[in-house]
Design a binder for these strands. Structure first.
Lengths: 341, 341
DNA sequence: TTGTAAGCGTTATCAG
DNA sequence: CTGATAACGCTTACAA
């Protein structure tokens, strides 16, 4: 009693090839465990029928989904795009499929999505940054779903991570700014609450201030959402608070692009009147003019290695190691010497 | 014989609440079909156990996955990001999860991903643009997986679509350019092969040329990949071919941003020496300077309505209707009157 | 309103 | 090397 025009099943293939379903299954999953002759017969049945295995059934039976989930804070700008693309390419090569969802920087949303992904049988998870309710790590451990953190390097954290030292990277950039003679410095950051990357970058600036003999506490930081518009607003606010500011360090390139636009709208020249720096080195950094001096992050390398590492964790049930990547400063044209006014 | 520390199942909940698995299932899927008292008991069992339904099992049994798949050409720039975000938000509200994958503008990859998504039990699919092997539509029909096309409006196509008339939209912009006195016009487009949006936009420019009494065949079009860098290269090429060109229409904002940068690198002023226009009105368009005159596309509206329509198609098994959205020209500063040199 | 039990399409264990 | 057959966890007629 053939179901009408429904997708062919293992059974259909088995019947057509005159073998058992077990054999068909083997042909697909362990081809070497079946003789050439039958394998051929089965394979031809497979594609004359246009058979595709039913995913849900496979997951249920095998208790593996060959699926990796990733939850990123946002898809609305390119910050995570390139790294994720590399991540997905690497996974694909290894036979895994990537499921992406975005949390809009909301911890509750992220938590819900983690649970959803786990319920869907994700074999492993990629998370951005370390900051989250410890319960989540407990949950993941109980469920035995390995997770890898990216975009942040923190050794001995709850989860292994691949990334760079946000604090040190930002400090290096701030050192440079200070070295150029800037003393009246301000910062535009993303919200640091629950965001270790943002928090550490602020700390990095303070470190540099301290090293440069300046008052770290005097640093004015405006925290805002990661949008161009917000960067623009923050810039205006900072400038009205202290018009003599000569350098504004931004938590990322998106914010910097906004600050830059606002500076120009206010009739200021960059970097002659005010210097602006970014972070991430996304494409945007090269598009604005003047192009942004920023911190280059090896996004593709990070994504690719994250995939490799996570797959290892999944397949060998090992803890996973923490990997540190280097960043470097790319000098373009938005940072110049302090204007001795 | 309790499996050690494995995720709790329906059975565990049923036992704990002293009811049958059927009842628990009902509590979760049709709460009104069970009396308040038992429902409460069940629900409390559910969350003391921290129960989450097993997705694969649910899909197998219900033959529904509450999952919608979307395949977009790229995640590397923001073209599809905003629309997709709206799409996902709307789906989420209706209890669906979105699975995204990107095909890197490669038809074979797209086809494979469509099959993967279907095998995973996607209840419906969102595809970008109409151009693809007709076999794919046949396949989708056989599998009874409804698909909706976005970013392009073409009535009576194989699949219902939501989008705008790419040809007419580009024509309107080109009309404006011509109205400003430009006659030596060139175009930078994405590859038009297998990309109806790109192809129709080129046609739109030709239409405008024709209406303006100019030679449509004389239009030089450079086709390239949708990257800033490519836009820059194309601009250089176009200018060396015909240095007297006064306006360059670009297939999208990314290309336009590249062209703009290249123009400036070559020491040309925009729009005084050459006008450049974009398409899409992504954030980028406002960030570059001069800001791009471009075609505004209602991305969020498109994404939101696509979700609504697709869910309807899935739930009511109806064909789905084709919806046309309006675009409009947003005038910023990259387009000016023709320079009568 | 609730329970019983038959699938759903694979994989995996055991025999043969 | 291949074939039966028992799970896997849930939904859903059908009965009670």
């Amino acid at each position: 009693m053939s179901k009408l025009r429904s997708a062919p099943t293992l059974d259909d293939v088995a019947r057509k090839a005159g073998v058992s379903t077990a054999t068909v299954s083997r042909c697909l999953n362990a081809p070497d465990r079946v003789v050439e002759a039958t394998r051929k017969r089965v394979m031809s049945a497979v594609d004359t029928l246009g058979y595709t295995p039913n995913f849900a059934a496979r997951v249920m039976a095998a208790k593996r989904s060959f699926t990796i989930g990733a939850i990123i804070p946002t898809m609305e700008n390119a910050i995570f795009a390139r790294g994720l693309q590399a991540f997905q390419e690497e996974l694909h090569q290894r036979g895994y499929t990537l499921l992406v969802s975005s949390s809009a920087y909301r911890p509750e949303v992220e938590e819900e999505q983690i649970r959803t992904l786990v319920a869907r049988g994700a074999d492993g998870l990629l998370l951005i940054g370390h900051d989250r309710d410890p319960k989540i790590y407990d949950y993941l451990e109980r469920q035995k779903v390995p997770a890898m953190v990216a975009w942040s390097y923190i050794p001995n954290a709850r989860a292994p991570s691949i990334g760079f030292d946000n604090r040190q990277a930002m400090q290096a950039l701030a050192d440079r700014v200070i070295g150029l003679g800037h003393t009246r410095i301000a910062m535009i950051s993303g919200f640091s609450q629950g965001n270790d990357r943002a928090r550490l970058r602020i700390e990095g600036v303070r470190d540099a201030l301290r090293r440069g003999g300046l008052q770290p506490d005097a640093l004015t930081v405006v925290e805002t959402s990661y949008e161009v518009e917000s960067g623009a607003d923050a810039f205006a606010q900072l400038m009205s608070q202290n018009p003599r500011t000569t350098a504004i360090l931004c938590g990322n390139d998106v914010l910097a692009a906004g600050a830059l636009r606002q500076a120009q709208n206010m009739g200021m020249r960059v970097p002659e009147n005010v210097s602006i720096t970014g972070f991430d080195d996304i494409e945007l950094a090269q598009i604005v003019s003047p192009a942004l001096t920023t911190v280059h992050v090896p996004h593709r390398e990070m994504g690719g290695k994250a995939a490799l590492e996570l797959v290892e964790m999944v397949e060998k049930s090992i803890p996973g190691s923490t990997i540190r990547l280097q960043t470097d400063i790319v000098e373009r044209h938005s940072l110049g010497p302090a204007n001795k006014s």
